[in-house]
């Protein structure tokens, strides 16, 4: 990611390939690279997933904690994203090197999940003003080979899909003090309804040499990212609604191109959502006795 060095000739080659709708790895402009997803890789968390998109490697752990609601939203639970760029990905992330990128990704995720159409936070409330669930979604970036936003959002969705929150058996107010009891059975759990959770679609635009080109590329490799001046990260819900749009990079866009890009992002987002849900359902059908490979495969 940070150490992709390209010469002018290499960049020209990549950009001409994009123009001809035939990219350096043989894909067309709107094709994704193959990905692998596995859930429940971390047995000590409430939910977890590992996603590999080519060489991009993401590990997500979800932990649920009982917390007090915010005073201005007493009926709502909390959802917090944290993205850690591990130095394992590239030495540039050592120390505080990955903090900026991590914050950028976690802010984008927060924006994407902020809409009440996506996740109704009131479902995470246990006792108004007293107790609620706080979901910590912790993302660990282990390797990056382009398209971090899409990969992270897919992994987050998979991890939230596998998340199991303990059932609350009793929740009473005793003299103004909240008293809650969780179910003793570890399998007695509530699952989140991920049916409306968005995925992020990154569209790489404005390739350095083609100032007027309208071609945009989906699922860019790190080399393609290096050639692009601006990209748009769109959060698309499974029904095609867009919850957030973020533009990254230094380049600029014409308003008319933006509208076309959003249309394209919507179409791709719907397909991507369907794809990840299919994969997760397929994994579910293997049952609880399936072997968990994790990093040993």
């Amino acid at each position: 990611m940070a150490n992709t060095l390209l010469s002018l000739a290499e960049k020209t080659f990549i950009v001409h390939g994009v123009d001809d709708n035939y990219r350096t790895d043989g894909r067309n402009r709107s094709e994704y690279r193959p990905m692998e997803v596995e859930t429940k890789v971390l047995p000590h968390t409430s939910g977890s997933a590992r996603l590999r998109l080519a060489n991009t490697d993401i590990l997500v752990g979800v932990k649920a904690e009982v917390d007090t609601p915010y005073p201005d939203n007493p009926n709502e639970g909390k959802l917090e994203f944290f993205v850690d760029c591990s130095a394992n990905a590239t030495p540039a992330f050592e120390g505080k090197g990955g903090d900026n990128l991590g914050t950028e990704i976690s802010n984008t995720l927060t924006l994407a999940y902020q809409s009440s159409h996506v996740l109704d936070l009131t479902t995470l409330c246990i006792l108004p003003q007293q107790k609620c669930w706080k979901l910590y979604v912790d993302v660990l970036i282990l390797q990056c080979d382009g398209n971090l936003f899409d990969a992270v959002a897919l992994a987050v969705k998979a991890a939230l899909y596998s998340a199991q929150i303990p059932k609350v058996t009793t929740a009473t107010l005793d003299g103004g003090k909240a008293d809650i009891q969780l179910s003793d059975d570890p399998f007695d759990c509530v699952k989140l309804d991920v049916g409306s959770f968005p995925v992020l679609v990154t569209l790489c635009k404005n390739f350095t040499f083609i100032q007027i080109g309208e071609n945009c590329v989906v699922d860019p490799t790190s080399e393609e990212e290096e050639c692009s001046a601006a990209s748009i990260v769109v959060a698309v819900m499974p029904n095609g609604r867009i919850t957030s749009v973020v533009k990254t990079g230094y380049g600029s866009l014409q308003p008319s191109t933006l509208v076309k890009t959003l249309e394209l992002a919507k179409d791709i987002g719907i397909k991507l959502n369907a794809g990840i849900m299919n994969a997760l359902k397929e994994e579910d059908e293997l049952g609880s006795q399936r072997e968990i490979f994790g990093f040993l495969k």
């Binding site: 590990l59 752990g61 850690d84 591990s86 050592e94 120390g95 910590y136 912790d138 660990l140």
Partner: peptide, 8 residues
């Protein structure tokens, strides 16, 4: 060397 522990 850098040793770091995932938050989870």
């Amino acid at each position: 060397c850098q040793y770091s522990m995932a938050v989870f």
